[in-house]
Amino acid sequence: MEKKMKIGFTLGDINGVGPEVLVKALSDHRILQYCTPVIYGSNKILAYYKKVAGTEHFKYASCDAIENANPKIINVINTIHEDIELTPGIENETGARCAFDSLEAAANDLIAGKVDAVVTAPINKHNMQRVGFQFNGHTEYFDYKAGNNGNLMMLMNDQMRIALATHHVPLKDVPGILSEEFILKKIDLLHRSLVEDFAVMRPVIAVLGLNPHAGDNGLLGSDEAEVIIPAIQKAQDKKMLVVGPLAADGLFGSGNYKQYDGILAMYHDQGLVGFKALSFNSGTNFTAGLPFVRTSPDHGTAYDIAGKGIADGGSMLQALYTAIDVIRNRERYHTERENRLIPTPLRSEK
């Protein structure tokens, strides 16, 4: 019988839409057939947003430690003091502190192997700085927790997977970060993730250019010729199926993105403008390259609709499904590797 996995959830900024979309996503009790949900947060906060969301089917119980999680119900480990004041739609230190406390508790259990994955609710990156969060986002935070061995931010839905060579950095700094070695490493991370995390045995990867029209043969920039194309060629030498550099506008506008198992964009908005225009509120953010599984919805705190009961839980639900799929695919991949047949020479017939 397949072991039932434990999935941890953070609350994110408690004054944003994170708690509401989490309540909505977990309100279907059939989820308990696939995993044991563990929320690192607060009974008080969840009770408030359960009322806001109008989800009577969302039922949960307190749990003092992850080891004692009840597989038949949603568990809540209280990491936040019950006397906090909720102010939906307001950016403040309380929202940041609660988000950080929830994140730290979930991450620690993830690293200790006590949960199989963590699904993170949205945070306000700028607001988090005031409580000692010294990272540009969840991706950098989890990379640090894993030992800074390299990561890849990936957004996905049923039609595409888009990875970012650089993510939370100013646009003016991107050209200085990109190098042949750097891009090759990102291509390798994407290729490995497609194989191990998504069970695509011979993935086809598209690499986008940096400049308009992918440099137009050097007329609009030399980055493609100097660093991107050499990186692609080295990936091809390693038997990876990689094409490019391609122009982002043509790829998304023509619908040709559907032809590839993965796409590597050079910077944040190059990849995510196209992705979110085509799939807002139905995508998942996945951090590839980590020894553990972390996903999140593809949207932010959305203070403007927080506390109004109108936030969509679809992306949070997709983040949960993605986490479950990745866990299963990784287990299957490593099991097959361990049990693979190794050819040995036949003894010569006498």
Results as ranks from 00 to 15, higher is better:
residue 29 H to N: 13
residue 264 L to R: 08
residue 202 R to D: 09
residue 20 E to G: 09
residue 46 L to K: 13
residue 101 D to R: 03
residue 155 L to P: 02
residue 134 Q to P: 05
residue 314 G to P: 00
residue 285 N to W: 01
residue 332 R to F: 08
residue 106 A to S: 08
residue 55 T to R: 15
residue 296 S to G: 04
residue 164 L to R: 03
residue 324 I to G: 00
residue 59 K to T: 12
residue 123 I to A: 05
residue 36 T to C: 05
residue 122 P to H: 09
residue 25 A to F: 07
residue 332 R to I: 08
residue 142 F to E: 10
residue 140 E to T: 07
residue 44 K to M: 14
residue 280 F to S: 00
residue 61 A to H: 07
residue 71 P to E: 03
residue 161 R to Q: 11
residue 252 F to E: 04
residue 58 F to E: 01
residue 3 K to S: 03
residue 258 K to A: 10
residue 137 G to S: 07
residue 129 Q to P: 06
residue 122 P to I: 02
residue 36 T to A: 02
residue 18 G to W: 09
residue 257 Y to P: 02
residue 305 I to R: 00
residue 200 V to I: 15
residue 101 D to Q: 08
residue 134 Q to D: 15
residue 319 A to H: 00
residue 203 P to F: 14
residue 329 N to S: 08
residue 74 I to F: 04
residue 146 A to S: 15
residue 92 N to S: 04
residue 264 L to D: 12
residue 118 V to M: 05
residue 178 L to S: 10
residue 259 Q to T: 06
residue 205 I to L: 13
residue 200 V to Q: 13
residue 283 G to W: 00
residue 232 I to Y: 01
residue 154 M to N: 11
residue 219 L to T: 09
residue 73 I to P: 01
residue 332 R to S: 10
residue 38 V to A: 08
residue 72 K to F: 04
residue 318 Q to K: 11
residue 50 K to V: 09
residue 50 K to E: 09
residue 170 P to Y: 10
residue 200 V to A: 10
residue 42 S to I: 03
residue 184 L to R: 10
residue 100 F to N: 00
residue 92 N to K: 03
residue 223 D to Q: 14
residue 60 Y to W: 14
residue 125 K to Y: 02
residue 64 D to G: 04
residue 201 M to D: 08
residue 239 K to D: 04
residue 271 G to F: 05
residue 116 D to H: 03
residue 294 R to D: 01
residue 24 K to L: 04
residue 305 I to F: 01
residue 83 D to N: 14
residue 88 P to M: 03
residue 160 M to L: 10
residue 347 R to H: 13
residue 350 K to T: 10
residue 239 K to S: 06
residue 115 V to S: 10
residue 33 Q to L: 11
residue 199 A to R: 15
residue 255 G to L: 01
residue 243 V to Q: 10
residue 81 H to F: 05
residue 73 I to Q: 07
residue 284 T to Q: 00
residue 121 A to T: 05
residue 242 V to F: 06
residue 156 M to Q: 11
residue 256 N to G: 05
residue 329 N to F: 06
residue 307 G to M: 04
residue 110 L to K: 05
residue 222 S to Y: 11
residue 347 R to D: 13
residue 346 L to N: 12
residue 282 S to C: 08
residue 83 D to L: 05
residue 159 Q to V: 01
residue 149 N to L: 14
residue 15 N to Q: 11
residue 220 L to W: 03
residue 174 V to Y: 14
residue 151 N to I: 10
residue 51 K to H: 07
residue 222 S to V: 13
residue 177 I to Y: 12
residue 92 N to H: 06
residue 34 Y to Q: 11
residue 173 D to V: 03
residue 143 D to N: 15
residue 108 N to E: 14
residue 36 T to V: 07
residue 170 P to G: 10
residue 52 V to C: 08
residue 287 T to I: 06
residue 142 F to Y: 15
residue 107 A to Q: 11
residue 310 I to W: 07
residue 336 E to D: 12
residue 18 G to V: 09
residue 103 L to I: 12
residue 32 L to H: 06
residue 79 T to H: 01
residue 15 N to P: 02
residue 273 V to C: 05
residue 11 L to M: 10
residue 315 S to F: 00
residue 174 V to Q: 12
residue 330 R to W: 11
residue 264 L to Y: 11
residue 181 E to W: 00
residue 334 H to D: 04
residue 191 H to I: 07
residue 186 K to V: 03
